[in-house]
Design a protein around this nucleic acid. Structure first.
Lengths: 318, 318
DNA sequence: CTTGATACG
DNA sequence: CGTAGCAAG
């Protein structure tokens, strides 16, 4: 294999073969030029609708959670990610792929007064790998790290905060890797993680957020055809996600917007994918079935820069 | 030892204890304020005098050579180093620390028409380490790589070009390393390299240029007191240089400017050393004694940016 | 501090 | 492409 080839051949995330798009004219075009057959289409963008702040039952939200895979907290911080968070003002902020030991955190976030309660997890072995964080305005009753299984808890991937009415879990699910080198492990993870969540759900309603590293259905990524063997869209990972839903959880965004395409939360930095909206929906808010009626909105802040993922925000009326 | 301390304690290059400087007022100061005892002195800069284009005997130069440790050719290229070279227009350009395999060279330099004759050396083992280059307007009679000793020729440190009237050797001498871990090897190198140069010199006059990784005397670095145990200013390295001169070579800059202080060619990127001119003279043009009368000038282009070393230029009338 | 190689995504 | 760590200077 080449050491640093520009292209790797088929299958990589972000590739976009020239498949004609069915709804090509839905979005903005340059002007109303008489479009010939091979007219150059603008990229198919996605505009998140205005936030709904009340539940279907008319109850105003009582909890706002933002989740963001920051792809390196220190770089994200330099790119003003935290300033956007201040404007968004969630009650709880969950971050994934922080890639930063606690002692190396920028003081501005380590000491951030808006979130007096901060919890950091990082990889035991590899410095600068993985890592998640949970910052809260109110103090949780209890906070735990990992999923209670030795072999899955070495990489700082899960934090669980217990609140009076619910659990909040943030996760950075293992990537299956280039060449799917870690797909087997990922399947083990999916089983263990699902069992963990079921256990929590049996005790209290649960909100799960984070980078689940899977696009569930074809609608959840730009190029499903070319990515059936890519990490994040293998049948195994998609089925894992299906089983999670079957275990009693709701994909809040897809529940509210069952047929909305082009709504992605991740774009590879390569090939200018983000400008072309060649993306994947990898970041989710899942909630216990019992919370279905409490969900006000599930947002994708896809205009917000600072990482190869965008932030997502959930409003719930608990 | 700390993993990433800001300071390492004494001995590192670039450190500047507050020794009162004898000629503190030689150079430009802010204004003519009545200077109190602890007045803040501006840094002691160095201004290279105008180029002398003729030899003491009145002969105009026939060869102009520029040498530059570029500290990574690709980064240097992005910083427009080559544009300065085009203005300088030497007949031969010698580069050290290219850190670049030939196949990864920027095409603009790989194909540069001004220098039809280009020679590249790089480290056999470690990619992106060491490496030198020699580019010439005229074609050498012969070009060789290394010094003819297996154990010293694995790191792409020497290129020798034979011209009708002289040899031109460019070298990147091994750094003795933090904690002097490679000082022993450096001493072996010095012996072997000196023998190599003597062999050439017995055949034809010789010009040696490059990063010799030693500051010869106290005048050749800003902080001699604090660096007696630092790589580049140990007694062993300084004596090695002395023996090279004793073998029949002339330090052209020091020959022309025997008492000029603050003339440096390297400044660590750390601690803002270059702005304060806390530097070292590590880059040299040495010539065979027989060429003494041919030397027109030996310049230090210390205003030129693009690396932690500045370029140097030699004019000779051969 | 800055370069480049490497791992990972 | 971009973020980390690392080795080297």
């Amino acid at each position: 294999m080449p050491k640093r080839g520009k292209k790797q051949g088929g299958g990589d995330s972000g590739e976009e073969p020239e498949v004609p798009e069915p709804e090509a004219k839905k979005n903005k075009k340059e002007g109303a030029k008489g479009a010939k057959e091979k007219a150059v289409e603008g990229p198919i963008l996605y505009q998140d609708p205005p936030d709904k702040l009340a539940s279907p039952g008319g109850k105003r939200y009582t909890l706002k959670v933002t989740s963001w895979n920051v792809d390196g907290l220190r770089a994200w911080f330099k790119k003003k990610g935290l300033e956007w968070v201040r404007e968004e003002g969630p009650d709880v902020l969950c971050l994934q792929e922080t890639k930063c030991a606690e002692k190396l955190l920028p003081p501005e976030i380590r000491d951030m007064p808006e979130y007096p309660h901060k919890y950091w997890a990082c990889s035991d072995d590899k410095e600068g790998y993985s890592g998640v964080a949970l910052l809260s305005k109110t103090e949780p009753l209890n906070v735990t790290y990992g999923i209670g299984e030795e072999e899955h808890d070495k990489e700082g991937r899960v934090i669980t905060a217990e609140f009076p009415s619910h659990f909040l879990v943030t996760a950075y699910v293992p990537n299956a890797g280039r060449g799917l080198v870690r797909l087997e492990y990922r399947q083990q993870w999916d089983i263990a993680f699902r069992a963990y969540l079921k256990g929590l759900d049996a005790r209290k309603p649960l909100i799960l957020c984070g980078d689940l590293n899977v696009a569930h259905k074809e609608i959840d990524l730009k190029n499903p055809k070319g990515n059936k063997k890519s990490a994040g869209f293998t049948p195994q990972e998609r089925e894992g996600f299906g089983e999670l839903l079957a275990a009693g959880f709701l994909d809040t965004f897809r529940h509210l917007y069952p047929d909305t395409p082009y709504a992605y939360t991740f774009w590879t930095y390569m090939m200018n994918a983000r400008a072309k909206n060649v993306g994947w929906r990898l970041d989710y808010f899942l909630v216990s079935q019992s919370l279905q009626g409490a969900v006000c909105d599930s947002k994708i802040r896809n205009q917000v820069m600072g990482s190869d993922h965008c932030p997502i925000t959930l409003y719930v009326a608990l």
